[in-house]
Design a protein around this nucleic acid. Structure first.
Lengths: 168, 168
DNA sequence: CTTGGAATGTCAACAACGCTGACATATGGT
DNA sequence: ACCATATGTCAGCGTTGTTGACATTCCAAG
C-alpha cells in the first residue's frame, strides 16, 4: 500500500485485495459486459438503417418526453451537429416528432410517435431482459453493489445528469 | 409478476423491487458509468493521433504478450481489416512489434515495445485510478456484487474469453 | 509432391457517428 | 431597433467499424 498501487479492504470474513491485477480484471469485466449490454439492441438495429446513436436518442426522448435538443445534447455528450443527423433521420422516418417551442421558438421539443414508441419498446425490452437475467443470477445484494460502483465511476457532470433523470 | 415484467427479491431486511423502472435506472447507470470508464484514456489519446481502438489493441497485447492477430480479433470482436489498420499504425509508430511465428510462420505474434509499454502504463494508470476510487467509495461487498453482475451480463463467448484471460 | 484450406495482409468502397466551421434564425437585454 | 447569445441546420472531414475481392504463405492430407 505504501506505493498507493493496491488497497486492502475487508469483505465480510474475507480479505479482498484490490491489487492492480484485481482492477485489471474488473476493467476487462466492464469491457466485455458493456458489449453484452449493447449487443441485443445493436443486433435489432443493424437490420434497420439505424445504429447505437439512434437507440440512445430514442431512449432518452422516451425517458424525458418534450426534452429540447440542447438538453438531449448534454445527456448524450455529443455535439449538436452529431445529434442533429440522427434526429433528422428519425424525424424523416416518422419515429420522432419535433415541435417548435411555444415559449421560446428557438427550442424544439422532442416526442416519440407511435411507431417510435414501438421501436423503443422493442429495444428496451431486449436490454431489460438481459439485465433482469443478470440481476436474478447475481442476487439483490450484488445489484445494489453494482449500482453503487457504477455511480462512483461516473464523471461528476454525468452523475448529476443521472440523478436528475433518476429522480424524475 | 404475472406478466413477467418485474421480479421481487429479498435483500437483507429490505425488499428490492426489480421493476422496469429499477432496470431502467441500472441501464442508465451503465451508460453513464461506461462514459466515465473510457473518459480518461480517451482524453489522453485524443492528443495523439490515436483513438479507443488503439487503446484496446495496446491493452490486450500487453495483457497477453505474444498473442496472434487472430486471437486478438476474437477478443476485440472486430474484423481483421479493422484491426489491421490500427495495428499497422501502431507498428509504424514503433509501439508494437509483430514477429513471424517460429512454429507457424503464418502467424504474427504481437508484443509491445518499450514505448508501447509506456503508453499502456499511462492509459491503464488513469483508468485504474478511477476504478480504484470507485471501489474504495463503494466498498468491498459492492465490488464483489459489481463483478458478479457484470459477468452475468456478458455474452457466453465473451464470458469464456474473460475467464480465459482472468485465469492467466 | 501436389493441392486444399487456414492465417495473414492489402486494396477498395462504404456506413455510422464522432468532430469543426459556417451560417440561419429567434430571443432578449441594452 | 440592434446586436450578442442561444439554438438549430448544413457541409465536410476523421476514426473506426463493415463487406468483398484477392495475393501470399504455409501446413497438412492425400
Amino acid at each position: 500500500m505504501a506505493d498507493g498501487r493496491s488497497t486492502l479492504v475487508h469483505s465480510g470474513e474475507n480479505l479482498l485485495f484490490l491489487t492492480d491485477e484485481q482492477l485489471r480484471q474488473s476493467m476487462e469485466a466492464m469491457f466485455f459486459a458493456y458489449r453484452g449490454f449493447t449487443a441485443d439492441p445493436d443486433r435489432i438495429l443493424s437490420d434497420m438503417a439505424y445504429g447505437r446513436a439512434h437507440h440512445r436518442a430514442i431512449y432518452f426522448i422516451n425517458r424525458a418526453p418534450g426534452t429540447t435538443v440542447n438538453n438531449l445534447l448534454n445527456i448524450l455528450g455529443v455535439t449538436k451537429q452529431s445529434l442533429n443527423r440522427v434526429l433528422r433521420t428519425l424525424i424523416e422516418d416518422g419515429l420522432v416528432e419535433s415541435n417548435v417551442g411555444k415559449v421560446d421558438k428557438r427550442e424544439r421539443h422532442l416526442f416519440l410517435t407511435k411507431s417510435g414508441h414501438e421501436l423503443e419498446q422493442t429495444l428496451s425490452d431486449a436490454q431489460r431482459a438481459r439485465m433482469r437475467m443478470a440481476f436474478r443470477d447475481a442476487g439483490p445484494e450484488a445489484v445494489s453493489g453494482f449500482r453503487h460502483v457504477l455511480e462512483a465511476m461516473m464523471d461528476r457532470e454525468m452523475r448529476a445528469a443521472y440523478k436528475r433523470l433518476r429522480d424524475t
